[in-house]
Simulated assay, not measured.
Amino acid sequence: MSRDRTDARGTIVYDADCGFCTRTADWVGSHGTATTQPWQTLDLEPLGLTVDDVTTAAYWLDADGRVTARGAGAVAAALRSCRGGWRVLGHLVYARPVRPLADVVYRWVAANRYRMPGSTDACRIS
């Protein structure tokens, strides 16, 4: 999976069982050009993804439906699909010097998503 290819017309794949993830995906969908797709509605096998993959990280599909980013990279791509300062933030998150920190922050948020606003019991990753 390439971390350098993104397309503002792509799709963020998220966990619809998690209230925090759903609220975040809804926000992305209303602020940018990206579409949002819960993993529960996708055939994961042709994408090369497993249930474990999509319950532990968000994924970015380019305009052709190929997986091109996961985790912080997927969030950065989604932000780059947004307008104004959010687009700038997406480029910053994806910048080579910031990317390692963004990955750490993403893993922490994913592990603690059940503590985030809008979370539900389903947000807890086992």
Rank of each mutant, 00 (worst) to 15 (best):
A76V: 03
D4E: 11
D62I: 07
D43E: 15
G85F: 12
T36M: 10
G73N: 10
V88T: 15
Y106C: 06
M116V: 11
C21V: 11
P38F: 13
R99W: 00
A77R: 02
T33D: 14
S2H: 08
L49R: 14
S81D: 03
A63C: 03
D121I: 07
A57G: 02
L49Y: 15
V98P: 00
R113W: 04
D7T: 08
A72S: 15
V28T: 09
G19S: 08
A34G: 01
A74R: 07
W60K: 02
L49Q: 10
R113C: 04
W27F: 15
Y106N: 05
M116P: 03
V93M: 04
A16F: 08
C18T: 09
L42P: 02
R99C: 00
L47I: 10
G29T: 10
A16C: 12
A72Y: 04
T6M: 09
I125Q: 05
L42E: 01
A58L: 14
W27H: 09
R9D: 14
D15Y: 12
G29R: 15
R87F: 09
D15K: 10
I125H: 04
M1G: 09
G32T: 05
V109T: 06
W108Q: 08
D26C: 09
P117C: 03
D103M: 03
A57F: 13
T68Y: 05
W60Y: 12
R5L: 14
